[in-house]
Design a protein around this nucleic acid. Structure first.
Lengths: 239, 239
DNA sequence: CGAATGGTTGACGCTTCTCAAACTACGTGG
DNA sequence: CCACGTAGTTTGAGAAGCGTCAACCATTCG
């Protein structure tokens, strides 16, 4: 346990300008690392000596219990940073679920840059705020939402762009097992819930990995626990 | 919604030295604010214009859904910062569960200090790393642990000091409802689980708010899902 | 073509939730 | 001092959602 899988990653770092936002300055030819799906970038307990910038592809972060139970704590795709919030050792395992392109920054140099560029520290801080917001939303989801509400929330979070608009359809880069371990469910329940949403006419499933949205409004209601059918009648006490 | 309860807090800020660690430099007489139990320090959706330093007491952070379902995302007690990870508006509601003493730092000045003192930025970053670690542990708890495992984990997290040692007994500052909303359970299940742990001889409950630990080893096994009785035989695949 | 992998569907059971009542502690007012 | 109301906790009985186990289907790859 705690093996240094990070050494799987070859290549080195020419210190490109840490493009936190997708589409930000990314000079052609800066040294990046291509990894295959299934590659473990770092494992829970590893020495956290690097910060990664995800250029493209999707990674999965997860923790495991001694008996094998797994919790996916997040998916990270293009344009985001990975491994900033790790003091000492890695908090969780990061694995590529699709082929991915990464840019590695040695932690020591990364932290020197933070000290040297005041604006950078605030930008990193803002990134971590986002991580924390996502984590809190996920806690609400895991602790208080039903299976349908979880899946609806999940699909909408994937469909949403930065402006809060939704795509008409999406492709799921991850497996049903990954989704289940992300939502605190089993694959069977995830599958059944997809089927239920399809039967209810909220989504279409041309194939297991692609989802078309047929009724975004009703999906949003489900995701937030908003309207339970007729649109009125919440629980007493609030509202 | 989003009312500015923060204005409940009077007093002002003489810029004491942001004591991130309990027991760090805290000049006598710096302006602090005393709040009663039940005081809402800030509410989800409020403008996040302040960072708070919790001097003493315990606060609860929580989010609510439109129908009233509630998820407590964390408890914050003496020596920790509150509200750093909020860009724009507050992510959740912060409420005192005990009488508390706070020190308020206007956000603008706080961020100027981050830019001015490079070391501070890293210390704040380290604080947020801890928040994120806690959040990830909580996701594992909420998504994958049973009721007993959740309660055992919760009790041990309260009993643990910075060195990883456990206290013999603790007083719970929060209600069963708060615990339930923190662990993704109902008050009834929390109560039943306490009773079960007592009947199994792992804890004693002189009164509802105080817990004595009678078998810390077995509690730890429960919390991690480690040994299920005989100490051997995990699931195949791992180990 | 056959095996392997991932996804879907079904039957059943268990953990936890829901609803309800009783008990305790505490403060109020007669 | 004691009856009373209130809020929090505990306990009980029944229901339901989701997990478990198992079989089946679809796709891919050798």
């Amino acid at each position: 346990m705690g093996a240094h899988f990070a050494s799987q990653l070859s290549g080195n770092d020419g210190f490109s300008p840490l493009a936190v936002r997708p589409g930000a300055a990314r000079p052609a030819g800066t040294p990046v690392q291509r990894v295959a799906a299934g590659t473990i970038v770092f494992a829970e307990g590893d020495v956290a000596d690097s910060v990664f910038e995800v250029v493209s592809g999707t990674l999965r972060l997860h923790k495991v219990m001694v008996d094998g139970r797994r919790q996916v704590t997040g998916f990270v795709s293009g344009g985001r940073l990975l491994g900033v919030a790790q003091s000492g050792e890695c908090l969780c395992t990061a694995e590529a679920v699709t082929p991915a392109v990464l840019r590695r920054h040695p932690r020591a140099a990364f932290e020197r840059r933070i000290d040297a560029e005041p604006g950078l520290a605030r930008r990193i801080l803002a990134e971590m705020c986002n991580d924390l917001r996502r984590a809190q939303d996920q806690m609400l989801l895991l602790g208080r939402k039903s299976a349908v509400e979880k899946v609806a929330s999940f699909l909408l979070s994937l469909a949403a762009d930065e402006d809060g608009d939704y795509a008409d359809s999406i492709d799921l880069p991850m497996s049903r097992t990954d989704i289940a371990d992300y939502l605190g469910l089993t694959t069977e329940t995830v599958s059944r819930t997809f089927t239920k949403l399809r039967n209810d006419g909220l989504i279409a499933l041309p194939c297991p990995v692609s989802v078309e949205f047929l009724d975004l409004d009703q999906l949003e209601d489900l995701a937030t626990g908003g309207a339970d059918g007729d649109g009125w009648a919440r629980r007493p006490g609030i509202c």
